[in-house]
Design a protein around this nucleic acid. Sequence first.
DNA 1: ACAAAAGTGTTCCTTCTACACCCATGA
DNA 2: TCATGGGTGTAGAAGGAACACTTTTGT
Lengths: 227, 227
Amino acid sequence: MIDREHLYLRLAVDLAILTVRDDALQALVITRANEPFRGRPALPGGFLRGDEDIDEAAVRELAEETGLDGTALHLEQLRAYGAPGRDPRGRIVSIAFLAIMPDLPLPTAGSDASSAAWVPVERVRGTLSFDHDEILDAAVERARTRLEFTTLATTFCGPSFTIGDLRNVYEVVWGHPLDPRNFSRKVIGTPGFVEPTGERRIPEIGRPAALYRAGTEKSLNPPIMRG
Amino acid sequence: MIDREHLYLRLAVDLAILTVRDDALQALVITRANEPFRGRPALPGGFLRGDEDIDEAAVRELAEETGLDGTALHLEQLRAYGAPGRDPRGRIVSIAFLAIMPDLPLPTAGSDASSAAWVPVERVRGTLSFDHDEILDAAVERARTRLEFTTLATTFCGPSFTIGDLRNVYEVVWGHPLDPRNFSRKVIGTPGFVEPTGERRIPEIGRPAALYRAGTEKSLNPPIMRG
DNA sequence: ACAAAAGTGTTCCTTCTACACCCATGA
DNA sequence: TCATGGGTGTAGAAGGAACACTTTTGT
């Protein structure tokens, strides 16, 4: 075997971190503090270190950018991006991840980022550095199909939520309204999707709603139809 | 930016190449010609070169191992495997691919492989080098769900096939029988799944069956239920 | 009383499922 | 005419879609 064929390169992880905030699907976008693309928006990410697995690198980067423990949240590999020339610094292959979070305040601004902020994905479209627009598109599409077939939507919510909150997640991610009555029945009638806490939430106006927490079931079948 | 943090490594692509052959789901397994694991079974694969994208490397490796043009077949990224120590040669991260082929003769034995052969996945289980057992498991599970939601099963068949041939693919991959009559109706009633060629195949015994080729539709909705 | 959001009941329709039955061919 | 696999008809069950209607709160 000829060693010339063996290309040495650097491996990065890039994170598409999504949340539902102000009735919009938003992504965590940083402003780059270093070249290349200094001062331009990008997805958070960083280089793989010598002693860690790829998923560990993703969890570490998530913690560095958001201060949150990624092991409790949804973190999933999307795919590898490795077009020659996708990074001006040289041959860098990136493993893209999808991360789902509830709408929590961001405790820290990361080291490599001069700022980190939630931005609606509709506004981010077409503005990102490297091939991060493509990564974000893939992440959003993956999240959309995950809502159909898994209980992932509960990860967008906090520790307790109403069926209306959960429906709002679906409506925002899918971009169209759902029938509240059929949705309610479907969710409550699916064993392991949600569990009642016994508490209720009293809104400013209207009938109080029962509160639920995420159940133990992870997959949905039959799925929730996207309409 | 501290350069010590940037790990340089080599990137490999590994291919789980599946076919349906002799009423069994089989994988293309090579016997390694070089260290490490010389003489042991493994999935075909190789290192990324400097001028190619990851998917191009997968197509190239598929051609080298099977002599077939991968652009016409189904080739799909599974995920990256990068545990430190997964390869005794050093830090090597591998992008795993799923490839689907009809049951064709294998024209060539590859350069890095002393032999390449189809082996039923049930017999391969637990015998492969590196973390290739894990990769193959992921590939089989991905193929199973792809049959539900896409027209991928036609890729297992040749250029023309009967509905019975197609059903056999489903039965072998899923591991349980399907109702021939309902299956027939479902496939023929799904626009774009299959197109009649006008030809018929006369079997040794029994009624001749109409021949079809793959249609243009790639996704199935509603899906074919796995039972 | 009214607005607003939570939830229930009911009807219609599509699709899956199971199985009875008919069709076309070679031996 | 029989065995074998290809293909159609049809009745029942299950679940989705649509929507009328009731419930529970604050103002």
